[in-house]
């Protein structure tokens, strides 16, 4: 019973982390048809800026330690939107409408550039910002089963972000507009949607989500060069399981992959890596477009 509970909670924690990193990727793909390899860099930049800022905050004469959570979120929003707007306006704008696979290569080039930029700014030594993680202590969820409250809070925060995204997309006019673009870009353009503005905003939102994922993860890990890369492959796995471009799909994909991994970690730890990609290959073998991806339309 306890182990089942442990698997469920571990799975939920991991799933919420996965959803955080995958959401931005899938939003950008859905609207812009750009599979952004540099998403991992946004994650890394979010983690680095959060870790350095929180580190600085706690090294000085600390005011209210709980303010550090605002710092985490605030710096992700600032860093993410800044870098998102720069990249979209400075580069992607000029490549609109190019082949999807070419855009993968372009964003791969961006990944290379941003990796070095990260190293130039933050160096190669690890950063730690464990204070916000420790601050919340632990919570018992069953007999002899305790989790870091920060991790449990992450589930709540992720759920809130997911719900907010759902609400924004389904219950606001701008969100419906965005869904129209995801559904059929050509018709949306024909109806007079300003694609340039929409793309900039979308890319910035995606980048903020990526940076936020990094910033919220930073207190739980040591922030070192290369953390962004693993993220992009994992996020891709989650996103294709759910169906590229669908936020709901990303959520389902995250839960599926998160729980499966959690089962593997508890039952057969050496299988961890296999099951994550195993789920992906299995889903793709049965439904090539992912669980919630649209069926491809007739081409002739």
């Amino acid at each position: 019973m306890t182990s089942l509970l442990a698997i469920l909670f571990d799975g939920a924690i991991y799933a919420s982390w996965l959803f955080l990193v995958a959401a931005g990727l899938t939003i950008i793909y859905g609207v812009m048809r750009v599979l952004n390899m540099a998403h991992g860099s946004f994650y890394a930049i979010g983690a680095y800026s959060a870790a350095s800022l929180v580190g600085w905050y706690f090294s000085g004469n600390v005011g209210n330690p709980y303010l550090s959570y605002l710092l985490l979120i605030g710096c992700a929003v600032v860093a993410g939107s800044l870098i998102g707007v720069i990249i979209e306006r400075g580069l992607l704008r000029f490549l609109q409408g190019k082949d999807e696979i070419l855009m993968v290569i372009v964003t791969y080039a961006l990944l290379l550039i941003l990796e070095d930029v990260t190293k130039l700014v933050w160096g190669v030594d690890p950063y730690f910002a464990y204070q916000p993680y420790r601050l919340l202590g632990q919570t018992a969820v069953g007999v002899g089963l305790r989790f870091a409250t920060y991790d449990l809070a992450l589930i709540v925060v992720t759920a809130a972000i997911g719900l907010a995204a759902w609400f924004a997309l389904n219950r606001t006019n701008r969100g419906r507009l965005l869904r129209a673009v995801i559904h059929d870009r050509e018709i949306a353009v024909a109806m007079g949607v300003n694609v340039n503005v929409l793309f900039t905003v979308t890319f910035a939102i995606g980048a903020v989500l990526g940076a936020l994922a990094g910033a919220l993860t930073a207190p739980a890990i040591s922030v070192t060069p290369g953390i962004g890369v693993e993220v992009i492959v994992l996020a891709f796995a989650v996103v294709v399981v759910g169906g590229l471009g669908s936020i709901g799909g990303a959520a389902i994909g995250a839960v599926l992959v998160g729980l499966t991994r959690s089962v593997a970690v508890h039952m057969a730890p050496e299988m961890e890596l296999f099951v994550i990609y195993g789920v992906m290959f299995l889903v793709l073998a049965i439904r090539p477009q992912g669980l919630f991806g649209p069926v491809l339309a007739r081409r002739i």
């Binding site: 290569i105 372009v106 080039a109 290379l112 550039i113 990796e115 930029v117 130039l120």
Partner: peptide, 17 residues
């Protein structure tokens, strides 16, 4: 050594363009 990847990325974008 610290800007090698960056150079690669910039050259790659230049090549594509």
């Amino acid at each position: 050594p610290h800007t090698w990847q960056m150079a690669l990325g910039l050259v790659l974008i230049a090549l594509i363009l």
